[in-house]
Simulated scan of single mutants.
Amino acid sequence: MANNRLALITGASAGLGAEFARQYAAKGWDVALTARRLDRLDALARELEEKHKIATITISQDLALVKGVDTILRELKEAGRYVDALVNNAGYGLPGTFFDTSWKDQAAFIRVLYTAPIELVHKVLPGMVERKFGRIINVASLAGYAPGASGHTLYGSVKAGLIKFSESVHAEAQAAGHNIHCTALCPGFTRTEFHDANGTREAADQSPDWIWMKAGPVVEAGIEAVTKGQPVVVPGAVNKGLATLTKLVPEPLGRAVMKQQSKRFWMKDGD
């Protein structure tokens, strides 16, 4: 099993991260699973080992910590493994406006959703170049295409940044002739624990079923895109249509729509 390629997946304890682990394991990859909840990681690891006969590594780590990335990579090195595929999936929402949230919370948010993913890419790339193979998926969001809105202030900014970053890394790898692909996966509304964690489940449940996707097809689209060397992928026909609309709708109208929708999905109760 140690001869299998290894996929490192952040935020692997639930949602898209757990689904990435299941799909990579089903393809015969070994998986390194990292998140804060070790009990969940260990349970998932047992499931994948029994079902797919692959090797797993579980690492409990908080990416909000400055040394979080180094700790993860050090544990992999001590296990004698290196990263063939990286899935930067860890993330969460920070309800409320920029005015009523603390800088400590905002700084941790930036660290987990933006700085740590970029640091991981930077630190695994040299090994990928040396081995002449690498696959990187940065889980961005359809929010990266939309105008800014009130509430969850930095979410769209971070996701837009991940899209541009992924495009740039992919372009640089291709220009250098490396067999390294980097893809920004940009899902829309996906049925995971995300809305439970950020307190918007009630509002999300009131939205129509046709805007939702299940985790399986979203992850499948991401893996397929990075395998083919597609720098950005928006999964699902509805999401593709919405992404196109954001480019066609006049900016004032787009901001007005986001202002209305943010009252439902982005604001804390009482805001």
Rank of each mutant, 00 (worst) to 15 (best):
D196E: 12
G91F: 05
A43M: 05
A55L: 05
A79V: 13
A160R: 12
H152R: 13
L63Q: 02
H181I: 00
A256S: 10
R46H: 11
F109K: 12
R22M: 00
D70S: 04
Y155A: 08
S157R: 01
L8A: 11
K123R: 13
I57P: 06
D84I: 06
E251I: 00
P250W: 03
W210I: 00
T56P: 10
E50L: 11
M1V: 11
L63G: 01
H152V: 12
T183W: 04
K67A: 02
N89R: 11
A14R: 14
V249L: 09
A225Y: 07
P95R: 15
G156V: 04
L76E: 14
R74N: 13
E130I: 15
L154N: 08
V87G: 11
I136R: 03
F194H: 09
A79Y: 15
G254D: 03
K77H: 09
T183M: 00
I54T: 01
I57V: 09
E119A: 02
M128N: 10
I211P: 09
V257L: 11
T200G: 13
P117M: 08
A149N: 08
M258P: 06
G222Q: 04
V238Y: 05
P147E: 13
H170T: 01
C182F: 14
P217H: 03
T34V: 11
A32V: 14
A204L: 13
L73G: 07
Q260P: 08
V249I: 05
N89E: 13
G188W: 11
P187D: 14
Q261Y: 07
I136F: 07
K104D: 15
G161L: 03
G11D: 07
A79G: 12
I223H: 08
